[in-house]
């Protein structure tokens, strides 16, 4: 185990640096730079002004010099400075990260728990009415575009019923603190988390149902029945535990794509998260910021993969890490 962790951590470092290098060159392939965008906005794009900006940002250096200074920064965990936002990149990311983690955490927890339960129910009732209803609903949510669900939820619950806020993360004017603030954020969280969660919920429902049904067909389930084990106990103790592996795999993939999944919903609901920050950075050619965000998400992906491997060993004694 200790040997496995040592080797894996070495691999992780290698992978993260590799990703950082690829990111760097990939982003230089896009035309335009921050100086162009800023000069364009200022409306006075004299060559002298642009040259001054480029010099200030270090964009006038040859590519390899930029690359090595970037690499040096990455190795010292210095993510650089966003000239566009006038702040260190790490500060910007830390400012936005909690909002994204809250949104993703809530929606995935919602999707896995409710989706898993619905899938379990559907599998136990396979072929009956409950199964048909659940499966049809799951297919519907799976096929409906996320942004459309988001907009419709806003129309119904915010505009027509006026139960929930349209967007944002907290009421600006109120100046709430403590529990009241948490409750306010909670109210703002419901719609975006549901929007994102419904899509994932559909995935977990379908996955859990299929996975459970597969396990139900296995010999050891028949053995448990022959022992006289109660159907509910068979479902939870024998089938569910064996059906969890594919769920964990998918969970790993989705946690890894935290950023991508959030961009759309964060935009629709004006949620101040990392996804929107990345989106803005891309359009403003704020490469330092973008590289920083990509670096962080690659770290998240790699760590989640490690967590998935460890979860496997906890779930299935046949899997050993070596």
């Amino acid at each position: 185990m200790a040997r496995y962790l040592r080797r894996t951590i070495a691999q992780i470092a290698f992978v993260i640096i590799g990703i950082a290098i690829i990111n760097f060159f990939l982003l230089r392939l896009a035309p335009g730079d921050a100086a162009q965008v800023m000069a364009g906005e200022a409306g006075s794009a004299t060559p002298e002004y642009m040259a001054a900006l480029r010099k200030q940002f270090g964009l006038d250096q040859p590519l390899y010099v930029q690359f090595f200074s970037y690499l040096k920064n990455v190795l010292t965990l210095n993510l650089g400075y966003s000239f566009r936002q006038g702040m260190p990149v790490s500060d910007l990311i830390l400012q936005r990260l909690p909002a994204t983690l809250l949104l993703m955490g809530t929606s995935i927890a919602f999707a896995v728990s409710i989706g898993g339960m619905l899938g379990l129910l559907a599998a136990r009732q396979a072929g009956k009415l409950a199964d048909t209803l659940i499966s049809a609903l799951a297919l519907l949510f799976y096929a409906t575009p996320v942004f459309w669900i988001g907009v419709m939820l806003v129309v119904v619950f915010s505009v027509l019923l006026d139960w929930l806020p349209v967007g944002g993360m907290a009421s600006v004017e109120a100046g709430l603190t403590g529990l009241a603030y948490a409750a306010d954020v909670g109210r703002h969280l419901i719609l975006p988390a549901t929007t994102l969660g419904l899509f994932y919920l559909a995935i977990y429902t379908r996955l859990m149902r299929a996975s459970m049904l597969e396990v139900y067909g296995q010999d050891f389930v028949r053995t448990a029945r022959a022992k006289g084990v109660r159907p509910r106990r068979i479902a939870v103790r024998h089938v569910l535990r064996n059906a969890l592996l594919p769920i964990v795999t998918t969970l790993g993939v989705q946690l890894g794509s935290i950023l991508g999944g959030a961009i759309l919903v964060e935009t629709v609901f004006a949620w101040p998260g990392l996804g929107r920050l990345a989106f803005e950075a891309l359009f403003q050619r704020d490469l330092n910021l973008l590289l920083g965000i990509l670096f962080c998400s690659s770290v998240v992906v790699v760590l989640v993969n490690l967590a998935v491997d460890l979860a496997y060993t906890a779930l299935d004694p046949r899997i050993e890490l070596s």
């Binding site: 296995q218 050891f220 028949r222 053995t223 022959a226 024998h238 064996n242």
Partner: peptide, 20 residues
């Protein structure tokens, strides 16, 4: 089942739950 009438199966390799 299991109490008054019990059964043993052909395939011992798959008749037991792998995670218990």
């Amino acid at each position: 089942r299991g109490a008054r009438i019990a059964m043993i199966f052909q395939e011992p390799m798959t008749a037991l739950n792998p995670v218990l």
